[in-house]
Design a protein around this nucleic acid. Structure first.
Lengths: 148, 148
DNA sequence: TTAATTCCTATTGACTTAGTATGAAAAGCA
DNA sequence: TGCTTTTCATACTAAGTCAATAGGAATTAA
């Protein structure tokens, strides 16, 4: 699938915030340094997530971002829709007015695909990602690495 | 979802061939006229479907295209992969080498999504589309239309 | 030989996207 | 107050992608 860099960086930022916010807000600069994403690029993405009520921002010194609700209440569907509304929405290309084949295609395929994607992404939360990250992280440090 | 015009036009062409080939091959010009798609554009799409062994071409006068096998044996997965290999394949953006969050994202989301899409599209055939088209077509002519 | 057709490849123009740049506004702190 | 840290808003650019067009070569039936 083609997913924009914006969506991927947005999700990564949210997981970062989820992991690294201990009472205090997480700043763009910190996310940028940890995740190796341009700060200026993040400054474009995070406000969109704020508008979607996924994160809350505090301006000024000691400012930054925090999640508006527990990570298990933030679904990737929320996030993806906030950053790129086309990903989970229906395919629209041909003018459906006078193309019955396009209608059939939409009914048999596109609408079912997007319905599934909405459903599936609606059941994966930031918490799931953070947990998986934790496990990957633990595995990386605990187990010996075998080099070829 | 974002699906390229090429994929949509390709599928429409195949359904058209499926519907309109009675022993004889279907020409680009006829598809173009019926489906209102530029012939030159189709000339770019159909050879790709031939290379994927979905259609067979006959050159020269009285030439054209026919399906290589029964419509119920041609899945939309075949077609989509032939025309745009990115649609049903994994999201790859960040360098996964040193981003565990991207790894987590891939495992929890992208790879499952694409696996499902491969599976789903592998179970919808051209025959399904043609049948649906027939039903839509019959409904359009049989039932009275209500104009506002 | 002619007409009909697929095939090949280049090109164009429009649009999208990733990422940068500049600076304003807000807020903590001394 | 003034300095620093931060988010916010908006404009811009360079690269890439995509849809569609164009021109002509190759093939075949009649």
């Amino acid at each position: 699938m083609k997913i924009s860099s914006k969506v991927e960086c947005g999700i990564i930022s949210l997981v970062d915030i989820c992991i690294y916010s201990n009472d205090s807000a997480v700043t763009v600069i910190n996310i940028s340094a940890r995740q190796n994403i341009s700060a200026k690029y993040l400054e474009q993405i995070l406000p969109q997530l704020r508008q979607a009520n996924i994160i809350r921002s505090v301006k000024g010194a000691k400012g930054g971002y925090t999640l508006t609700r527990p990570a298990e209440k933030i679904t990737l569907r929320d996030v993806i829709n906030a950053l790129d509304s086309t990903v989970l929405s229906d395919v629209t290309f041909r003018d459906r007015e006078d193309c019955l084949i396009a209608d059939a295609l939409s009914e048999c395929l596109w609408s079912k695909m997007t319905a599934y994607l909405q459903d599936f992404t609606g059941n994966v939360t930031l918490r799931d990602l953070a947990d998986r990250y934790d496990r990957l992280s633990a595995a990386g440090t605990a187990e010996p690495m075998y080099y070829i």
